[in-house]
Computed example of a mutant assay.
Amino acid sequence: MINLNQQEYITILEKLLSINSPSGNTGKIIDFIEGFLHDLQIDTKRNNKGGIIAIFKGESNTKQRMITAHVDTLGAMVKEIKNNGRLRLDLIGGFTYNSIEGENCLIETTNGKTYTGTILLHQASVHVYKDASKTERNQANMEVRIDEKVTNAEEVRNLGISVGDFVSFYPRVKVTPSGFIKSRHLDDKASVAILLLLLKQLKQDKATLPYTTNFLISNNEEIGYGGNSNIPSETIEYLAVDMGPMGDGQSTDEYTVSICVKDASGPYHYELRKKLVQLAAEHDIPYQLDIYPYYGSDASAAIRAGHDIRHGLIGPGIDSSHAYERTHFSSVKSTGLLIYYYLMSSM
Protein backbone atom coordinates (compact mmCIF):
# COMPACT_ATOMS: atom_id res chain seq x y z
CA MET A 1 0.00 0.00 0.00
CA ILE A 2 1.21 3.51 -0.77
CA ASN A 3 2.20 5.47 2.30
CA LEU A 4 2.82 9.08 1.31
CA ASN A 5 5.30 10.72 3.65
CA GLN A 6 4.29 14.32 4.19
CA GLN A 7 7.81 15.76 4.28
CA GLU A 8 8.91 13.79 1.22
CA TYR A 9 5.78 14.95 -0.58
CA ILE A 10 6.36 18.60 0.34
CA THR A 11 9.99 18.37 -0.79
CA ILE A 12 9.12 17.12 -4.29
CA LEU A 13 6.14 19.46 -4.57
CA GLU A 14 8.25 22.50 -3.66
CA LYS A 15 10.79 21.49 -6.29
CA LEU A 16 8.10 21.23 -8.95
CA LEU A 17 6.62 24.56 -7.91
CA SER A 18 10.03 26.25 -8.06
CA ILE A 19 10.39 25.44 -11.77
CA ASN A 20 8.33 27.82 -13.88
CA SER A 21 6.24 25.97 -16.45
CA PRO A 22 3.48 28.02 -18.07
CA SER A 23 1.77 26.23 -20.94
CA GLY A 24 4.04 26.48 -23.96
CA ASN A 25 7.26 26.72 -21.95
CA THR A 26 7.58 23.48 -19.99
CA GLY A 27 10.93 22.12 -21.15
CA LYS A 28 12.80 22.66 -17.87
CA ILE A 29 10.27 20.89 -15.69
CA ILE A 30 9.91 17.98 -18.10
CA ASP A 31 13.71 17.63 -17.99
CA PHE A 32 13.51 17.48 -14.20
CA ILE A 33 10.78 14.84 -14.23
CA GLU A 34 12.65 12.79 -16.81
CA GLY A 35 15.74 12.82 -14.59
CA PHE A 36 13.67 11.83 -11.56
CA LEU A 37 12.19 8.85 -13.40
CA HIS A 38 15.49 7.79 -14.94
CA ASP A 39 17.06 7.71 -11.47
CA LEU A 40 14.36 5.17 -10.59
CA GLN A 41 15.19 3.22 -13.76
CA ILE A 42 11.67 3.67 -15.08
CA ASP A 43 11.33 3.62 -18.86
CA THR A 44 10.12 6.88 -20.37
CA LYS A 45 9.45 8.42 -23.74
CA ARG A 46 8.56 11.93 -24.84
CA ASN A 47 5.79 12.86 -27.20
CA ASN A 48 6.26 15.49 -29.88
CA LYS A 49 4.26 18.01 -27.84
CA GLY A 50 6.89 17.84 -25.11
CA GLY A 51 5.09 15.74 -22.50
CA ILE A 52 6.64 12.64 -20.96
CA ILE A 53 5.24 9.13 -20.53
CA ALA A 54 6.49 6.68 -17.90
CA ILE A 55 5.81 3.07 -18.82
CA PHE A 56 5.15 0.63 -15.98
CA LYS A 57 4.79 -2.93 -17.26
CA GLY A 58 2.00 -5.09 -15.87
CA GLU A 59 0.87 -8.70 -16.01
CA SER A 60 -1.34 -7.95 -19.00
CA ASN A 61 -0.14 -5.95 -21.97
CA THR A 62 -3.21 -6.54 -24.13
CA LYS A 63 -5.31 -4.38 -21.82
CA GLN A 64 -3.70 -1.19 -20.57
CA ARG A 65 -4.42 1.87 -18.47
CA MET A 66 -3.31 5.47 -18.76
CA ILE A 67 -3.03 7.86 -15.84
CA THR A 68 -2.26 11.50 -16.39
CA ALA A 69 -1.50 14.67 -14.45
CA HIS A 70 -0.40 17.92 -16.03
CA VAL A 71 2.65 19.95 -15.21
CA ASP A 72 1.83 23.06 -17.26
CA THR A 73 0.44 26.03 -15.38
CA LEU A 74 -1.26 29.34 -15.89
CA GLY A 75 0.95 32.18 -17.03
CA ALA A 76 1.15 34.98 -19.56
CA MET A 77 3.02 36.36 -22.56
CA VAL A 78 4.23 39.82 -23.35
CA LYS A 79 1.54 41.28 -25.62
CA GLU A 80 2.96 44.77 -25.98
CA ILE A 81 5.84 46.92 -24.80
CA LYS A 82 4.19 50.15 -23.73
CA ASN A 83 5.58 53.63 -24.25
CA ASN A 84 5.89 54.08 -20.47
CA GLY A 85 8.38 51.19 -20.25
CA ARG A 86 5.88 48.71 -18.90
CA LEU A 87 4.44 45.53 -20.40
CA ARG A 88 0.95 44.61 -21.45
CA LEU A 89 0.08 40.93 -21.01
CA ASP A 90 -1.89 38.26 -22.81
CA LEU A 91 -3.05 35.49 -20.48
CA ILE A 92 -2.24 31.78 -20.88
CA GLY A 93 -5.05 29.69 -19.41
CA GLY A 94 -8.43 30.52 -17.97
CA PHE A 95 -8.14 32.97 -15.10
CA THR A 96 -8.93 36.56 -14.25
CA TYR A 97 -6.63 39.57 -14.07
CA ASN A 98 -7.72 40.43 -10.54
CA SER A 99 -6.30 37.07 -9.36
CA ILE A 100 -2.76 38.17 -10.31
CA GLU A 101 -2.94 41.82 -9.25
CA GLY A 102 0.06 42.65 -7.07
CA GLU A 103 1.84 39.39 -7.92
CA ASN A 104 5.58 39.30 -8.50
CA CYS A 105 6.55 37.69 -11.78
CA LEU A 106 9.47 36.55 -13.91
CA ILE A 107 9.95 37.58 -17.54
CA GLU A 108 11.97 35.10 -19.58
CA THR A 109 13.40 36.39 -22.84
CA THR A 110 14.00 34.33 -25.96
CA ASN A 111 17.77 34.53 -25.42
CA GLY A 112 17.44 33.10 -21.91
CA LYS A 113 17.76 36.26 -19.82
CA THR A 114 15.29 36.75 -16.99
CA TYR A 115 13.95 39.86 -15.31
CA THR A 116 11.63 40.29 -12.35
CA GLY A 117 8.60 42.52 -12.18
CA THR A 118 5.24 43.10 -10.55
CA ILE A 119 1.77 42.88 -12.12
CA LEU A 120 -0.20 45.99 -11.26
CA LEU A 121 -3.17 48.07 -12.26
CA HIS A 122 -1.94 51.02 -14.31
CA GLN A 123 -4.06 53.27 -12.08
CA ALA A 124 -2.75 51.64 -8.90
CA SER A 125 -1.85 54.76 -6.92
CA VAL A 126 -4.88 55.87 -4.94
CA HIS A 127 -3.17 59.20 -4.31
CA VAL A 128 -3.34 59.94 -8.03
CA TYR A 129 -6.32 58.01 -9.42
CA LYS A 130 -9.60 58.77 -7.69
CA ASP A 131 -11.45 55.73 -9.10
CA ALA A 132 -8.66 53.17 -8.70
CA SER A 133 -10.92 50.79 -6.74
CA LYS A 134 -13.59 50.89 -9.45
CA THR A 135 -11.30 50.47 -12.46
CA GLU A 136 -11.84 47.21 -14.33
CA ARG A 137 -8.99 44.74 -14.10
CA ASN A 138 -8.49 43.83 -17.75
CA GLN A 139 -5.80 43.65 -20.41
CA ALA A 140 -6.01 47.37 -21.14
CA ASN A 141 -5.55 48.43 -17.51
CA MET A 142 -3.09 45.86 -16.15
CA GLU A 143 0.67 46.04 -16.74
CA VAL A 144 4.00 44.65 -15.59
CA ARG A 145 6.31 47.08 -13.77
CA ILE A 146 9.80 45.78 -14.63
CA ASP A 147 12.48 45.87 -11.93
CA GLU A 148 14.97 47.68 -14.18
CA LYS A 149 15.69 51.35 -14.86
CA VAL A 150 13.47 51.74 -17.90
CA THR A 151 11.18 54.61 -18.79
CA ASN A 152 10.23 53.90 -22.40
CA ALA A 153 9.75 51.08 -24.90
CA GLU A 154 13.21 51.40 -26.47
CA GLU A 155 14.96 50.89 -23.14
CA VAL A 156 12.86 47.79 -22.54
CA ARG A 157 13.74 46.36 -25.96
CA ASN A 158 17.41 47.00 -25.21
CA LEU A 159 17.06 44.54 -22.31
CA GLY A 160 16.17 41.88 -24.85
CA ILE A 161 12.48 41.78 -23.90
CA SER A 162 10.11 41.32 -26.82
CA VAL A 163 6.54 40.37 -27.68
CA GLY A 164 5.99 36.65 -27.04
CA ASP A 165 8.29 36.38 -24.02
CA PHE A 166 6.83 34.18 -21.29
CA VAL A 167 5.79 35.62 -17.93
CA SER A 168 5.53 33.34 -14.88
CA PHE A 169 3.97 34.10 -11.50
CA TYR A 170 5.76 33.50 -8.21
CA PRO A 171 4.17 30.43 -6.56
CA ARG A 172 4.61 31.70 -2.95
CA VAL A 173 4.63 28.24 -1.37
CA LYS A 174 3.63 28.09 2.28
CA VAL A 175 3.08 24.97 4.39
CA THR A 176 1.37 25.42 7.74
CA PRO A 177 1.88 23.33 10.91
CA SER A 178 -1.77 22.24 10.59
CA GLY A 179 -1.10 20.56 7.24
CA PHE A 180 -2.35 23.16 4.77
CA ILE A 181 -0.40 23.76 1.57
CA LYS A 182 -0.80 27.20 0.00
CA SER A 183 0.64 28.07 -3.40
CA ARG A 184 -0.10 29.03 -6.93
CA HIS A 185 -0.08 26.15 -9.43
CA LEU A 186 -1.26 23.38 -7.09
CA ASP A 187 -3.32 22.80 -10.21
CA ASP A 188 -1.86 20.42 -11.13
CA LYS A 189 1.60 20.07 -9.59
CA ALA A 190 -0.02 18.73 -6.41
CA SER A 191 -1.15 15.73 -8.47
CA VAL A 192 2.12 15.39 -10.40
CA ALA A 193 3.96 15.08 -7.07
CA ILE A 194 1.56 12.30 -6.02
CA LEU A 195 2.21 10.33 -9.21
CA LEU A 196 5.99 10.72 -8.96
CA LEU A 197 6.06 9.41 -5.39
CA LEU A 198 3.63 6.63 -6.28
CA LEU A 199 5.93 5.53 -9.12
CA LYS A 200 8.89 5.69 -6.76
CA GLN A 201 7.20 3.43 -4.23
CA LEU A 202 5.94 0.98 -6.86
CA LYS A 203 9.46 0.67 -8.23
CA GLN A 204 11.11 0.29 -4.81
CA ASP A 205 8.52 -2.31 -3.74
CA LYS A 206 8.99 -4.19 -7.03
CA ALA A 207 5.22 -4.09 -7.31
CA THR A 208 3.41 -5.92 -10.07
CA LEU A 209 0.42 -4.17 -11.61
CA PRO A 210 -2.34 -6.24 -13.21
CA TYR A 211 -2.14 -4.13 -16.38
CA THR A 212 0.59 -2.20 -18.12
CA THR A 213 0.03 1.42 -17.15
CA ASN A 214 1.28 4.50 -18.97
CA PHE A 215 1.76 7.53 -16.73
CA LEU A 216 1.49 10.67 -18.86
CA ILE A 217 2.79 13.95 -17.47
CA SER A 218 1.10 16.25 -19.94
CA ASN A 219 2.19 19.80 -20.68
CA ASN A 220 -0.71 21.48 -22.48
CA GLU A 221 -3.75 20.76 -20.31
CA GLU A 222 -4.42 24.39 -19.39
CA ILE A 223 -4.93 25.20 -23.06
CA GLY A 224 -7.07 22.16 -23.78
CA TYR A 225 -5.09 19.43 -25.51
CA GLY A 226 -2.41 18.04 -23.21
CA GLY A 227 -3.59 14.44 -22.93
CA ASN A 228 -5.47 13.89 -26.17
CA SER A 229 -2.77 11.89 -28.00
CA ASN A 230 -0.13 9.15 -27.56
CA ILE A 231 -2.73 6.84 -26.04
CA PRO A 232 -1.86 3.22 -26.87
CA SER A 233 -4.59 1.36 -28.75
CA GLU A 234 -4.64 -1.24 -25.94
CA THR A 235 -5.83 1.41 -23.45
CA ILE A 236 -9.20 0.59 -21.90
CA GLU A 237 -9.26 3.02 -18.96
CA TYR A 238 -7.92 6.55 -18.76
CA LEU A 239 -7.79 8.31 -15.39
CA ALA A 240 -6.95 12.00 -15.12
CA VAL A 241 -5.61 13.15 -11.76
CA ASP A 242 -6.34 16.86 -11.47
CA MET A 243 -7.61 19.27 -8.88
CA GLY A 244 -11.14 19.29 -7.50
CA PRO A 245 -12.42 22.90 -7.41
CA MET A 246 -14.26 24.20 -4.35
CA GLY A 247 -16.95 26.85 -4.05
CA ASP A 248 -20.63 27.53 -3.43
CA GLY A 249 -22.72 24.50 -4.29
CA GLN A 250 -19.69 22.19 -4.52
CA SER A 251 -19.23 19.03 -2.46
CA THR A 252 -15.42 19.00 -2.79
CA ASP A 253 -13.39 19.92 0.27
CA GLU A 254 -9.71 20.12 1.18
CA TYR A 255 -9.65 16.91 3.22
CA THR A 256 -10.90 14.18 0.88
CA VAL A 257 -10.35 12.94 -2.66
CA SER A 258 -12.79 14.45 -5.13
CA ILE A 259 -14.35 12.11 -7.71
CA CYS A 260 -15.78 14.03 -10.64
CA VAL A 261 -19.06 12.77 -12.07
CA LYS A 262 -19.48 15.51 -14.70
CA ASP A 263 -17.76 18.63 -15.99
CA ALA A 264 -18.29 21.02 -18.91
CA SER A 265 -17.64 18.14 -21.33
CA GLY A 266 -20.44 16.01 -19.88
CA PRO A 267 -20.60 12.97 -17.59
CA TYR A 268 -17.54 10.83 -16.98
CA HIS A 269 -17.75 7.09 -17.64
CA TYR A 270 -20.40 5.80 -15.25
CA GLU A 271 -18.96 2.34 -14.65
CA LEU A 272 -15.47 3.68 -13.97
CA ARG A 273 -16.91 6.28 -11.61
CA LYS A 274 -18.83 3.60 -9.69
CA LYS A 275 -15.68 1.52 -9.49
CA LEU A 276 -13.71 4.44 -8.00
CA VAL A 277 -16.45 5.01 -5.43
CA GLN A 278 -16.49 1.30 -4.55
CA LEU A 279 -12.71 1.24 -4.06
CA ALA A 280 -12.86 4.32 -1.83
CA ALA A 281 -15.62 2.78 0.27
CA GLU A 282 -13.89 -0.62 0.56
CA HIS A 283 -10.63 0.92 1.76
CA ASP A 284 -12.11 3.63 4.01
CA ILE A 285 -10.79 6.46 1.83
CA PRO A 286 -12.66 9.73 2.47
CA TYR A 287 -14.16 11.01 -0.79
CA GLN A 288 -16.68 13.40 -2.26
CA LEU A 289 -18.60 13.18 -5.54
CA ASP A 290 -18.87 16.43 -7.42
CA ILE A 291 -19.72 18.24 -10.65
CA TYR A 292 -17.27 20.82 -12.00
CA PRO A 293 -19.34 23.24 -14.11
CA TYR A 294 -16.53 25.20 -15.82
CA TYR A 295 -13.85 22.58 -16.25
CA GLY A 296 -12.20 20.22 -18.70
CA SER A 297 -9.46 17.64 -18.16
CA ASP A 298 -6.91 15.63 -20.10
CA ALA A 299 -9.41 12.76 -19.97
CA SER A 300 -12.20 14.81 -21.54
CA ALA A 301 -9.72 16.07 -24.16
CA ALA A 302 -8.94 12.46 -25.03
CA ILE A 303 -12.64 11.67 -25.45
CA ARG A 304 -13.10 14.72 -27.68
CA ALA A 305 -10.16 13.54 -29.79
CA GLY A 306 -12.08 10.34 -30.53
CA HIS A 307 -10.37 7.77 -28.32
CA ASP A 308 -12.48 4.75 -27.38
CA ILE A 309 -11.76 4.67 -23.65
CA ARG A 310 -13.45 4.71 -20.26
CA HIS A 311 -12.51 8.04 -18.77
CA GLY A 312 -12.42 9.17 -15.16
CA LEU A 313 -11.28 12.16 -13.12
CA ILE A 314 -10.19 12.42 -9.49
CA GLY A 315 -7.95 14.72 -7.49
CA PRO A 316 -7.27 16.58 -4.28
CA GLY A 317 -9.69 19.32 -3.32
CA ILE A 318 -8.29 22.78 -4.10
CA ASP A 319 -9.64 26.04 -2.72
CA SER A 320 -9.50 29.22 -4.87
CA SER A 321 -8.65 27.40 -8.10
CA HIS A 322 -6.67 29.44 -10.63
CA ALA A 323 -5.84 31.99 -7.97
CA TYR A 324 -3.74 31.61 -4.79
CA GLU A 325 -4.70 28.01 -4.13
CA ARG A 326 -4.81 25.86 -0.99
CA THR A 327 -5.23 22.22 -0.11
CA HIS A 328 -4.56 20.00 2.89
CA PHE A 329 -2.22 17.02 3.05
CA SER A 330 -5.12 14.76 4.06
CA SER A 331 -6.69 15.38 0.63
CA VAL A 332 -3.37 14.57 -1.05
CA LYS A 333 -3.07 11.35 0.98
CA SER A 334 -6.62 10.26 0.13
CA THR A 335 -5.98 10.87 -3.56
CA GLY A 336 -2.77 8.82 -3.47
CA LEU A 337 -4.53 5.91 -1.75
CA LEU A 338 -7.37 5.83 -4.28
CA ILE A 339 -4.92 5.86 -7.19
CA TYR A 340 -2.97 2.99 -5.64
CA TYR A 341 -5.99 0.76 -5.08
CA TYR A 342 -7.29 1.62 -8.53
CA LEU A 343 -3.99 0.54 -10.11
CA MET A 344 -4.14 -2.76 -8.25
CA SER A 345 -7.75 -3.46 -9.18
CA SER A 346 -9.10 -5.47 -12.09
CA MET A 347 -11.04 -4.00 -15.00
Rank of each mutant, 00 (worst) to 15 (best):
H269T: 07
A140R: 07
A305L: 07
L186P: 02
A323I: 11
N214E: 11
V156N: 05
H307G: 09
G117Y: 14
G336T: 04
F36A: 03
H185A: 14
S265K: 09
P22E: 13
A54T: 11
L202I: 05
D187V: 00
L159A: 11
Y115F: 15
I285C: 03
S258F: 01
K28P: 06
N98W: 08
L202F: 08
K113R: 15
I92A: 12
L121D: 05
K262P: 09
K82V: 11
S233L: 14
G247Y: 04
I100V: 09
N138F: 01
K174H: 11
C105S: 01
V156T: 04
D31A: 13
A76L: 07
P22Y: 13
V192C: 15
F32K: 06
Y255L: 02
C260T: 04
L37V: 07
L198Q: 02
G112C: 13
I81H: 05
A240Y: 06
S191L: 14
L195P: 01
A302W: 00
V150R: 09
N138G: 06
N111C: 11
F36E: 01
G160A: 11
S331N: 05
V257Y: 08
S178P: 00
H127D: 15
V78W: 11
D147L: 12
G75M: 06
L199C: 06
I303P: 15
V71F: 04
I100E: 07
I303G: 07
E254N: 07
E143A: 05
A240H: 04
I33E: 01
G164S: 04
H311D: 04
K57I: 14
C105K: 00
I53K: 04
N98C: 05
G35E: 06
I231T: 11
N158L: 15
S133K: 10
P316K: 00
M1K: 02
A69N: 06
K189L: 15
D205F: 10
S191G: 12
A301W: 02
A302T: 00
V241S: 03
S162Y: 03
I12S: 08
P316S: 00
M344L: 15
L199M: 11
D131G: 01
K28H: 13
Q250L: 03
F166C: 03
K275Q: 15
Y238L: 07
I92C: 05
T68P: 00
P267R: 02
P293M: 04
